[in-house]
Amino acid sequence: MTEVVAVARDAAHRFSKQLCPGIVLIAGQGVEGDAHRGVTVQHRSRVAQDPTQPNLRQVHLLAAELLDELNAKGYDVGPGEMGENVTTRGIDLLALPRGTRLALGEAEVEVTGLRNPCAQISGFRSGLLSEVLMRTPEGGLVRRAGIMAVVTRGGAVTPGDAIAVKLPAAPHLPLERV
């Protein structure tokens, strides 16, 4: 079953987000009450580069399967602790093409790209960065820290909500760092 496992938000710019019984997504802005909500970029590193950039990182989604894998390797990581707003199960988020729409509860988001894991992850759990940012044998980067999306339809999202996937028209474009 493809579903929402947990939802989280945080009004401050901290690495981890606080789990809550439900979140409200606001079209074109992000998660109500979250520090990353806004039409323009809210991530501090992006604001420093150009505060007028559109916010393509309104909602962060992460697969519970990644958390399962990390916990099996000895990391103690729960939903929301890697900064995601929505923890999912039953969907390969990293394999989705850019522009995929995900219906989550009453809301809908459009996938914009991959989360770029940063050094803060190692501050959270030593060694964790090497688990979510890897290299292929050819030297290419593999980012596994979830995906980012923008809100196309606002509404409530709660744990247990089903996730419906609507792929964009072909050709499908692979996810890149946003």
Rank of each mutant, 00 (worst) to 15 (best):
A48N: 15
L133V: 08
L114I: 07
A35I: 07
E65I: 06
C118I: 06
T152P: 04
V7C: 07
Q18E: 14
G90Q: 11
L129H: 03
M134S: 09
K17A: 13
Q49L: 13
V7G: 11
I23Q: 02
A149T: 12
A72G: 15
A72D: 15
R9K: 15
L129D: 01
A119G: 13
N55V: 14
T112C: 04
L102E: 03
V150L: 05
I121C: 04
A107G: 13
D50G: 12
V59L: 14
P79M: 05
E69N: 09
L175C: 00
S122W: 09
I26P: 02
H13Q: 12
L175I: 01
T152I: 13
A6C: 10
T112P: 01
A169I: 05
R153Q: 13
G146M: 04
G127H: 01
A63E: 15
P168R: 01
V142K: 02
V86H: 07
H36V: 06
G22N: 11
A63D: 15
T100W: 06
I147K: 06
L66K: 10
I147R: 08
G78L: 09
Q53F: 08
R125W: 01
G99W: 03
L25C: 02
G140F: 04
N55S: 09
V111L: 00
A27K: 02
I91L: 14
D68Q: 15
A11R: 15
A64I: 07
L56V: 04
